[in-house]
Design a protein around this nucleic acid. Sequence first.
RNA 1: GAGCGCGUAGCUCAGUCGGUAGAGCGCCUGACUUUUAAUCAGGAUGUCCAGGGUUCGAGUCCCUGCGCGCUCACCA
Length: 567
Amino acid sequence: MPPLDMPADIIGAASAWPFEEARKLVKRVERTGQGSVLFETGYGPSGLPHIGTFGEVARTSMVRHAFRVLTGDRIPTRLVCFSDDMDGLRKVPDNVPNQDLLRRHLGRPLTEVPDPIEPGISFGHANNARLRAFLDRFGFDYEFVSSTALYRGGRFDAALRLMLERLEAVMAIMVPSLGAERAATYCPFLPIHPESGVVMQVPLVSHDVAAGTISWRDPATAALFETPVTGGHCKLQWKPDWAMRWHALGVDYEMAGKDLIDSVKLSGQIVRALGSEPPEGFNYELFLDQNGQKISKSKGNGLSIDDWLRYASPESLSLFMFQKPSAAKRLYFDVIPRAVDDYLGFLDAFPRQADKEKLGNPVWHVHAGEPPAAEKLQPEGGAGTTLSFAMLLNLAAVANSEDPAVLWAFLRRYAPGVSPATHPRLDGLVGYAVRYYRDFVRPAKRYRAPDDIERDALLGLDAALAALPEGASAEEVQTALYDVARPIPRYQDFKAKTATPERPGVSNEWFNTLYQVLLGEERGPRFGSFAVLYGIPQTRALIRRALDGGLIADHVAFLAGRGTAPA
RNA sequence: GAGCGCGUAGCUCAGUCGGUAGAGCGCCUGACUUUUAAUCAGGAUGUCCAGGGUUCGAGUCCCUGCGCGCUCACCA
């Protein structure tokens, strides 16, 4: 991290939430005198990483960076992404193949269940690898930690023996939080069955602190087992597990969703019973879908991480995560363009801002204090401006093209000399806009068949286009358009500004016909400009496809290919 | 039952330390165009949920209430 060239009082007064969070840690360090700080995020590898996983790592990284700035980077920090991969497989996920295979392994640790996709590797390990690839894709600085590896490697042994020693205290914390039925059988230790390998949820028969063992009975056979709590022979129940981990690793900071408020409370009490201080942290609000429902993987509502990254940059998602973690936010497709344009706007403003504002600017947090320069378009004789994503989406619709090169042709008209080489991030935006067009705009198109009058008019237009000289300008095409329609009574407009009885104007209906029949839209671009950029021969081909019914047939096929019915 | 979040323009939402209410979209007018909507300039729009309190001053802080929604109470 490069040194931050800002006065200490400005940094000290920074009020963005990552700074507020980091100050809790500064106080903690002052109180305890500790020489380093550990951040943790948790992950359950029973499924693929999701957008909440990203949010938690991104937000924790922002707090970590703020802490480093507040302390001048004098206190070493680490971020651990902890995978709870020794957890037993509770139910077979609906969205994976080989359901039978998984069903045979129900109850066993995820790292003992074969992966339904990749042979020769466990479900837990496979999902761990997916998580790491996912995090690496964003360039997060983290250390991956496997629960299974630590349990089996003995890293938790001392903490596990301590918990056994303080079992009464732990029970006293947990039991009141449980229903009567569960309380009667609750035990924080979950022995791994030595024969079946299943993570057993059984009542405690007895325990031996000196030996470090628990005794329990197999409910199926009534056989009595004595199992060491150490060495990976036992796992802990969720809340004691969290607490034990905090204690054993010395976790100083972990945030969690508000659904875990009670868990944080109980785990905090347990970690105190083990003689450690619970980590700092806060509870962020959950994400909702378009209708205000909680996003859940099983329901498949809301937005997946892949959905977002198909249409927008990781930075824009990072910005979304930065903004108001304490408010429940709706997370669905429509918020993407807004997030992208907010991001571009903040990036644009950053160089103009004073230090104090910079520390409050989301891009400072998104880019760990070093936001890149905004890519601007410089029209001839004009000031540079940042092209908004909203405008690019319009352009993609206007260009009626899934080809980024066509959009670049539009952009060069505005600012000659620009290219993907000079504006690589803008090129990324162009790619996103094109995809958005393909996935949202194009499916909504409704092509209309021309009637006889329209058919004649289109034939006339085709002939007029054919008669244009090579390299005709947009204006010449536009003029040709008017001249084709002017003699046709349906399109004559005698109320137009410049209309005379001899030379009537041309009504909007003519253009609307072109949009509806040729582009499948109710509105469209200035047609002269469109035809030139799209290409005169291509436009003529488009007209022919409209006349022979090809456009409608193509669109039906396109929709069928996507599995959607025509609009 | 317990714990939260939200309520601001037609819609979606910002609003930092308490100091004359903002953005985007939409809408209206105009520029450009031979009259259409990539663009540009300008404009209109508010019971800041309600009531009370603190204050010289409250969208903002405190209390109460109303409405909408979420989470937890089995597991993680």
